[in-house]
C-alpha cells in the first residue's frame, strides 16, 4: 500500500509540472552567453522566468537545465532585462572586429530583442553589461 501511494504521488507530481526547454518556453526568458576567440568555444545560457537555468557548451549543443533559482528572482531578472530596451540600444561602433563576442537576448510573448558586443564601451548603457555579469556569475554559482 505504501509503495502504491508513493508511486501515485510521484506520478501526480510529475504530471502536474510541464517541462519546458528554452526553445518551447512560452513566457519570458533571458538568454546570454559569450564565446569565440582562438578556441571558438561558446557558453550559452538561458534563464526562464520560472527560475530554471539552462546551459549549452557550444553553438550546436542542446541546452540542458543546470540550476533552478527562486522564481520571483527569475521574474525580476527577466523584468530587469526587458526594461533595458535592448532593441532601442544604440551601440557605439569601435574600430576593428573582435573575435570574442558577448550577447544578451530577451525573449517573450511580446517579441525578442538582442544585443551583442565585444568591448563594454560599445554599450552605452552600463546596466546591460552589469546584468550580463550578474547573470553569468549566477549561472556559474547560483547560491551566491
Amino acid at each position: 500500500m505504501k509503495h502504491s501511494y508513493l508511486v501515485v504521488c510521484m506520478c501526480l507530481l510529475a504530471c502536474g509540472t510541464t517541462k519546458y526547454t528554452p526553445e518551447d518556453y512560452p513566457d519570458s526568458q533571458v538568454r546570454w552567453g559569450s564565446g569565440g576567440g582562438f578556441s571558438g568555444q561558446m557558453s550559452r545560457y538561458a534563464l526562464l522566468d520560472n527560475g530554471e537555468i539552462f546551459y549549452a557548451k557550444s553553438a550546436v549543443d542542446s541546452m540542458v537545465q543546470i540550476h533552478t533559482i527562486d522564481e520571483n528572482l527569475a521574474k525580476q531578472l527577466c523584468s530587469n532585462a526587458t526594461s533595458l530596451n535592448l532593441s532601442q540600444l544604440r551601440k557605439v561602433p569601435t574600430i576593428g572586429q573582435s573575435t570574442m563576442q558577448h550577447y544578451m537576448k530577451v525573449m517573450g510573448p511580446d517579441g525578442n530583442a538582442e544585443v551583442q558586443w565585444s568591448d563594454p564601451r560599445e554599450i552605452p548603457n552600463p546596466s546591460v553589461t552589469r546584468l550580463f555579469n550578474q547573470l553569468m556569475a549566477m549561472a556559474k554559482n547560483p547560491s551566491k
Binding site: G37, F38, S39, I95, G96, Q97, S98, T99, M100, K140
Partner: peptide, 19 residues
C-alpha cells in the same frame, strides 16, 4: 581574465590588440 574575474581559457583579437 573573463568578465567575472575567472581565469580565461582563451585568447582573442579585439580589433586592436591580442589578448
Amino acid at each position: 581574465v573573463d568578465q567575472n574575474g575567472n581565469e580565461m581559457d582563451n585568447a582573442f583579437w579585439n580589433g586592436q590588440a591580442m589578448f
